[in-house]
């Protein structure tokens, strides 16, 4: 199986090389092959130069689209080039590349369509700050209400999806803070979602896009987005979001 590992990055000159190298050192089995696909979201630093030297497939966005648009560009590449699985791996080095094989295992066995790497199952590694965990608990509750499923880490960007899910996200994927909303999208399209425990690191470079007053905006925006995508899919029929 061909696995596209989509690495969106915006100003990650300090960490992108480490992330790609980490990915390359993942021991492969006969079951799958990993292809890193770096998406440069119009970085203003030297990220592009660093990527060029890495000799990987990369997509260079001419304008800054935000995380959702960047990841979606990668999804579209994966779909167009007949990849079987797409994995999202953040360019800041938080996600553990060595755990990709465990992440995609449920898809390889055809047990799940979407697999989320969760920090909060084994409760090991970087657990984020108190207020973030509070927010994550809120999303856990909201998810439970909307899709009736317990997702411990709905904000985790470390995910693997199969072709069924790829077709959906190529059609519509939220622009900013896409992760919790995408879960509703998958769930209402009758995809099988599951989590596996992963250990995340603290970011090795760059800063989080969600800080201070933005966190309030984040909560409101994501809540509304989740509700609206829910209403859209529930009442306008499936696979028609936007």
């Amino acid at each position: 199986m061909k696995v596209a590992v989509i690495i969106p990055c915006y100003n990650e000159e300090a960490s992108i090389k480490k992330v790609v190298d980490g990915l390359r050192s993942v021991s492969l089995t006969e079951q799958f092959e990993l292809f890193p696909i770096v998406v440069n979201d119009c970085s203003t630093d030297t990220t592009l130069d660093v990527i060029k030297k890495l000799e990987v497939v990369y997509l260079n966005l001419a304008i800054n689209l935000g995380i959702g648009g960047a990841v979606q560009a990668g999804f579209k590449y994966a779909l167009n080039n007949n990849f079987d699985i797409a994995v999202q791996l953040d360019g800041d080095g938080q996600h553990p590349a060595e755990q990709i094989s465990e992440l995609i295992k449920p898809i390889l066995c055809n047990e799940l369509d979407v697999v989320i790497g969760s920090r909060f199952i084994s409760k090991e590694g970087f657990q984020s700050t108190f207020f973030r965990r509070l927010g994550i608990n809120y999303f856990k509750w909201l998810n439970k209400i909307l899709i009736g499923k317990r997702i411990t880490d709905s904000t985790s960007g470390f995910r693997a999806i199969n072709r069924n899910a790829l077709e959906i996200v190529c059609n519509y994927y939220p622009d900013d803070y896409p992760e919790p909303e995408a879960l509703i999208l998958y769930s209402l399209n009758d995809l099988r979602i599951g989590e596996i425990p992963v250990v995340m690191k603290e970011r090795s470079g760059g800063v989080s896009s969600i800080r201070s007053y933005k966190s309030i905006y984040y909560m409101v925006k994501v809540t509304l987005a989740m509700l609206f995508v829910y209403v859209n899919l529930k009442f306008n029929g499936k696979r028609s979001a936007l």
Partner: peptide, 21 residues
């Protein structure tokens, strides 16, 4: 905005396909 996003993605994909990268 949606159309611009689509165009930017298609442009990036095309550049990759043409080997301009």
């Amino acid at each position: 905005e949606q159309q611009i996003k689509d165009l930017a993605q298609q442009l990036a994909l095309l550049k990759e396909e043409l080997g301009k990268n």
